[in-house]
């Protein structure tokens, strides 16, 4: 199923991302919800060929994804930038074992942010991931995001990479209240 042809990717990137992940053979997903990930979470939760886990904290997803790969499944983790701070020591597991890891991180605290409490971890997200050894890629437009996740999936699942794709808050838009 391809739901994204001829769509405006600035709005419809979540369904295009779903297609990219399916094409990459992803059969497993874990998440702590973020408003920006709502559509993608719903699509993957609704796919009977994808095993999904809701987490109490993001680091759980890192260990689960490592286990899924050990058992032969390609896993993706969805979280927002604040969750990256919860992952740090657990990331030593995929980094040290050189296990494929693909994290899709929606950014907060960097663009049109109304909540100052989101700013510190938003500022620290990329540096933190890089400090533990995860490769960080950033997307600011829908088109970029699709292209970046396509190649990140290759780098992760076929080249044993540990990759986080940061989805810029400018693309996500201001949180609606």
């Amino acid at each position: 199923m391809n739901t994204s042809i001829n769509c405006d990717l600035s709005l419809n990137w979540p369904s295009a991302l779903y297609d990219v992940l399916k094409s990459a053979g992803v059969g497993h997903m874990s998440y702590v919800p973020d408003a920006g990930h709502t559509t993608l979470i719903n699509l993957l939760n609704g796919d009977r060929h994808v095993k999904t886990n809701v987490l109490t904290t993001e680091e759980e997803g890192v260990a689960i994804a490592t286990g899924a790969w050990l058992g032969g499944l390609r896993s993706v983790i969805l979280m927002q930038s604040s969750g990256v701070g919860n992952c740090i020591n657990m990331l030593s597991l995929p980094v040290q074992t050189r296990t494929p890891l693909l994290m899709l991180v929606t950014m907060r605290g960097e663009w049109n942010e109304f909540n100052p409490w989101q700013v510190p971890m938003g500022k620290a997200t990329q540096a933190t991931l890089e400090a533990i050894g995860v490769t960080v890629l950033r997307a600011e437009t829908g088109e970029d995001l699709i292209e970046i996740v396509e190649q990140a999936a290759t780098m992760a699942y076929e080249a044993d990479g540990q990759i986080a794709v940061l989805i810029g808050q400018r693309l996500l838009g201001k949180k609606k209240w």
């Binding site: 497993h28 260990a63 994804a65 286990g67 058992g71 032969g72 597991l93």
Partner: peptide, 10 residues
């Protein structure tokens, strides 16, 4: 949790 991932895959 690593065990959970393995269990879900196997």
């Amino acid at each position: 949790l690593t065990g959970l991932g393995i269990a879900q895959a196997q």
